Structure formats: structure tokens, C-alpha cells
Computed example of a mutant assay.
Amino acid sequence: MRALVIGATGATGKEVVKQLLEDERFTEIIAFVRRPHFAEQHKLKEHIVQFDALEASSDHIKGDVAFSCLGTTLKDAGSKEAQWHVDHDYQLHFAQLCQAGGVRHFILLSAVGANPHSNFFYNKMKGVLEMEVKALRFEQLSIIQPGLILRPDSDRIGEIIAGKVLGFFNRLGLFKQFAGTSTKKLARILVQESKDKRLGVRVLPVKEYQKS
């Protein structure tokens, strides 16, 4: 199988690439990156792209399954408009090119609470993206909705505090839908989802996936 990955240099994306390399089902992994990042691996090919001109790479956007793990924070992006451009526009364009290129299974890393009608910017952004990717009518579409993503060695103070606070409430049985998931475990969920052969759309909060 041939896998395509965007967001491959992010905390979750790197784990996805690592686990794909270890998976015998995959014979080729194409990582679309802004600059070289990974050590040389015989199954891995890095394709350098400009995400504002992704259509220039359309000949390379062909495969069996695609993983869309791209994302940024409001702080890193600098504005809501810039975050929308990365988290929504780039991923939607990638999905459109995947659909045109015959990709059968598209796996989107979204977020719990995604809702196109939400009053919260982040939830609305994720919800609009989910809605528009669904409209592309992939043969298989898997949308994974984690709560807090726990990045190894994170230096984001807010993320560290949120993880500790949520952990405390989770131990009391509260806010389980927002429970933190490590990037390693989240990547495992994404890669395992590529094994599912059911057609149509699957929208899965991480807590629901872990039950199945």
C-alpha cells in the first residue's frame, strides 16, 4: 500500500510516519513537507511542497490511503485568519487533490467538539473542515476526534497545565471526552483505522475508538 501524509513533521504526524514505516502493509510512504526533515528510509519519500501551491504536486498525490495531520496553534499562527488558512484551507485542498487522484481512504485528524455551527472559533473551524471533506464523498473517510493531545516534552505551558487539570478531573470520572491522548497512542489509532474496510464515513472520538 502507498500512504500519503501531510503534517508529517508535527508531533502526531512524526509518530504516524514512524508507525507506517514499521507496518508491513505499507510499501511506500510519501511525506509532503516544506523542507527535508527525516533520515533516509527505503520506504519513505519526502516531497517538498509549497502548501499555497499544492496543486503543483498533484502528480504525487496518488495512493491508497492519506493521513491529514496538519495543524497549528493560534499563538504560532499569529491570527485566526492564519490558523484557518493552515488548519482548514491547506487540509481541504489536500483532500480535494487526494479525491481527484483516486485515494480510496482519507483519514482526517480533527478534534472533539468539532461543529460547523459552534460559537467557538476552533470548534467551528474543525467542524467546517469535516463537513467539507465529507462532501468530497471518499469511498472511505475516517475522522478521528481526540481531546487534548499530549505532546512529548511539550514546552507549551497552557498545554501542560491543561493536561494536569484534565487528568485530575478524569480520575474523578469527569470530562472523559476531553481526556488527553499521547501522540504515540493517537498515531496508533490513526494507523489502525487504515485497516478498517468499512465503506462510508466514520466519525470517531478517541474514547469511542478505544471502546471498539
Rank of each mutant, 00 (worst) to 15 (best):
R2D: 11
L4P: 05
V5Q: 02
A8D: 02
A8S: 15
T9F: 11
E15R: 14
V16F: 06
V17I: 14
Q19T: 05
R25F: 09
R25N: 14
F26N: 01
T27N: 14
E28M: 10
A31P: 05
R34G: 08
P36W: 12
A39M: 10
E40N: 10
I48E: 05
D52F: 05
D52K: 13
D52C: 00
A53F: 12
A53K: 15
A56D: 15
S57R: 01
H60D: 13
G63A: 11
D64M: 07
C69N: 13
G71V: 02
T73E: 12
T73D: 11
L74A: 04
G78P: 04
S79I: 04
K80P: 03
H85A: 12
V86C: 06
D87L: 07
H88T: 00
H88D: 05
Y90H: 15
L92D: 09
H93L: 11
F94V: 02
Q96P: 03
L97D: 04
C98E: 02
A100L: 12
G101Q: 06
I107C: 07
L109F: 03
L109H: 01
L109K: 00
G113V: 03
A114E: 07
N115P: 08
N115F: 12
N119Y: 10
N123L: 11
K124I: 01
K124F: 07
V133R: 00
K134P: 02
A135T: 07
A135V: 07
A135P: 06
F138A: 07
S142N: 12
I143P: 03
I144M: 11
I144D: 01
P146F: 02
P146V: 01
G147E: 04
L148T: 02
L148K: 03
I149D: 01
R151D: 13
P152Y: 08
P152D: 09
P152Q: 05
D153A: 14
E159D: 15
I161D: 05
G163K: 07
G163E: 13
G167W: 11
F169E: 07
L172S: 10
L172R: 09
F175N: 09
K184N: 09
K184S: 13
K184D: 13
Q192W: 04
D196W: 10
D196A: 12
R198Q: 15
L199C: 10
R202L: 14
E208G: 00
Y209W: 15
S212V: 05
S212W: 10
